[in-house]
Amino acid sequence: MDLDALAGCLSSSACLVTQTTSGLIIGMLLFLVAVGLTLIFGVLKVVNFSHGAFYMFGAYFAMAAYQLTGSFALAMLAGAAGTAILGLIFERVFMSRVYGADVLMQLLVCYAFVLIFDDVVRIIWGPEFKSMGMPSAFQVMPLFIAGGVVPPYYLLLIGVALVAAIVLGAGLSRTRIGKVIRAAAHNPGMVSALGINTGLIYGGVFALGGMLAGLAGALAAPVRSLTPGMGFSVLIESFIVTVIGGMGSILGALIGALLLGLIRSFGSLGFPLFTEGLMYLFMVIVLVSKPTGLFGKEAA
């Protein structure tokens, strides 16, 4: 424990601003991964334990495309589109068969694919870790905003995450498709009785969730090393985010991610050896006081 360092930082404005911004950056990155998880749970009532694998594929697709074309935009597109297609196939061929089944059965199917996907990546790209490299456009000096340091690349990340949050939030509540999706989440039987293809909706939502994870992986590829199994720790963190925020709530995922980001950035000052433990402690406290998470609704 190093509470002096924490107190010292809290009393210095420069430190406060920097650590808060880094907390926000961590949080927005987390949100981008977690939002797909929460979306899939909200609509399909499935805890997608293979979400980390989509994140991993997004990163590898992006790296492959970047090496091939040298274009950052195409790399991002490859990461997002590739995982969207993968998500659609995964949902239609496999997950759709276990919707009625036990939670454990769904978990098992996801777990099987985590194992398979990790090995597939190992076969295609090899066991060693890789790095995509930062595009030269972003190899510039960081910006100083209100005494805090922010690299331009992270501004892009925050921008993408915010756009994702707004589009998803507004899209679900205001558009016709959003209304149908919410109706399907609430009462799939009724929606399909109205002549709407629920299979298509489910597949679409899963593809969207997979795409968000893939996009997150693609965006992370320039700053994080790529290895088989890289989705694992990311899955755990985004899992904590969605549980704290409330499974199925997009706002909850945003708030949960930002809270975790702040816990990480200030926890690393005050409790450098127990930062991870703090996250789990926080999760326990939230779950015990409000089992459905901060913004979760009671299950119908």
């Binding site: 199917v109 398979i116 990790d118 090995d119």
Partner: peptide, 8 residues
């Protein structure tokens, strides 16, 4: 992993 996954 692949073998175990397929069995699962």
């Amino acid at each position: 992993g692949i073998v175990l996954g397929v069995v699962i």
